[in-house]
């Protein structure tokens, strides 16, 4: 019961925060609200029994993402979003049609929390029953992440490495070039 109340309240808060992010024009306020948005969703992950995801979202989503956004704000020295010149009727139409199609798709989906939903009957019982014996880790999420889906995690590391190199190439090289140009002058 308490789970349901927390779930409903937190989701309502998250929706309100998203509307606030849409309406605001001050970029600093948008970034701070985005941090709150991430933190609220981390709280919701705890309520939905995903403790590991909540840790990661609080540290990486609310922490690092917000810091990166603030760093970009500092580097670009922008403060206010300018009002777009054209009326947003076409985007609104696209969003409403897509949203209606998605809502139609949820009408016969298995209800939230159902133990007999197709998602709960495929490989998850196998992980829960044999994961402890096969990997020796009581936390099944860690067991699946590091053992059953180890290559998946290797792929993730590759993506982060590639993104890191790309960021260095985009920003790191440019800074040095500016310095050498100044030294020549």
């Amino acid at each position: 019961m308490i789970d349901t109340i927390l779930d409903v309240t937190l989701l309502a808060f998250i929706a309100v925060t998203a509307i606030a992010i849409l309406r605001l024009r001050n970029l600093f306020a948008i970034i701070m609200l985005f941090g709150i948005f991430s933190l609220l969703s981390a709280g919701l992950f705890v309520v939905l029994d995903a403790a590991d995801v909540a840790f990661t979202e609080a540290a990486v989503g609310a922490g690092i993402s917000t810091v990166l956004l603030l760093a970009t704000l500092a580097l670009t020295k922008e403060h206010e979003e300018k009002i777009p010149s054209h009326r947003p009727w076409l985007p609104l139409l696209v969003v409403l049609v897509t949203g209606a199609a998605l809502i139609y798709g949820t009408l016969d989906i298995a209800p939230f929390g159902s133990a007999s939903a197709p998602a709960q009957t495929h490989v998850a019982p196998l992980y829960l029953e044999q994961g402890m014996a096969q990997t020796g880790v009581p936390n099944v999420v860690t067991g699946v992440l590091a053992s059953y889906r180890g290559f998946d995690t290797l792929g993730e590391v590759t993506v982060i490495f590639t993104a890191g190199i790309a960021v260095l190439l985009l920003i790191g090289g440019r800074r040095r070039e500016n310095q050498t140009r100044k030294e020549k002058e």
Partner: peptide, 24 residues
């Protein structure tokens, strides 16, 4: 179900990597 948790853990970290690239 532990499987969605694992997939989303991966997605969060990859999401930050792509966000940092976009910001760069």
């Amino acid at each position: 179900n532990p499987l969605p948790h694992v997939l989303i853990l991966t997605a969060i970290v990859v999401g930050v990597a792509t966000t940092s690239l976009a910001l760069a």
